[in-house]
């Protein structure tokens, strides 16, 4: 318990200042594999929001995204021994999240219950505050956030994944290539094509 408080308080104080951590994800994962459940809690607190953001844009449904984050964390707990330290923890966990989201979308597609109207159910989540400064505020005037969410969901799953991971989650090309399991060159090309498609879809909003 003390350990957990120590970890979390340390994490919190660090997060406030910089986005660097004392313990790397891989180190925490090693500790978790050795039976330290506090390390697991720390990993969950590090990744739950990031994964939620990624899955939310991927599936377009906030509640479903939360369920999938839960599934990912449960998978992390139950399959901890499958992780090998040769891979980055972040790419491993994003891969799990992507696979779970993909299979959920496939199930929904088969059931034919996934509609565009469903995607725009939780519009209230994207009400931006007026006091946002600079470029964000300026861009807000040009785009309808809801529109961009729908447009992202119009992209193919391959394009959607890479554009979310690159432009929203800010992952590197190398990390994305590991998550997707394809060469970096392919990822670069996919991102470029996805951006051009997004531009075509959104150019009327300019």
């Amino acid at each position: 318990m003390m350990k957990s408080i120590y970890y979390n308080s340390l994490e919190h104080s660090l997060e406030q200042n910089k986005k660097t951590y004392v313990f790397s994800d891989e180190h925490l994962m090693k500790r978790f594999q050795d039976g330290d459940e506090n390390a697991y809690e720390t990993l969950v607190s590090r990744y739950k929001d990031k994964l939620h953001n990624f899955i939310y844009f991927f599936v377009g449904d906030k509640d479903l995204a939360e369920d999938l984050v839960q599934d990912t964390m449960v998978r992390l707990f139950t399959k901890k021994h499958y992780y090998k330290e040769v891979a980055k923890f972040s790419t491993w966990i994003y891969t799990i999240a992507r696979n779970l989201s993909n299979s959920e979308l496939r199930k929904r597609k088969n059931r034919k219950t996934f509609t565009i109207s469903e995607l725009s159910k939780d519009k209230s989540n994207y009400d931006l505050k007026d006091e946002k400064p600079g470029i964000e505020r300026r861009l807000e005037l040009k785009y309808d956030i809801e529109q961009i969410k729908i447009t992202i969901n119009k992209l193919s799953r391959t394009f959607r994944t890479v554009i979310i991971l690159r432009d929203i989650e800010d992952l590197s090309y190398v990390d994305i290539s590991k998550i997707e399991g394809v060469p970096v060159g392919t990822i670069k090309s996919r991102i470029n094509r996805a951006r051009l498609q997004l531009r075509r879809e959104l150019k009327d909003l300019f």
Binding site: Q70, N125, D167
Partner: peptide, 26 residues
């Protein structure tokens, strides 16, 4: 310019967060 603005816009999107009872459910 459009590609550049799209990238900036996507990067500036507000981040979503899990609900407050996420940890207890987990």
């Amino acid at each position: 310019n459009q590609v550049r603005e799209n990238i900036l816009f996507l990067k500036s999107l507000p981040k979503t967060k899990v609900s407050s009872d996420f940890d207890s459910k987990l």
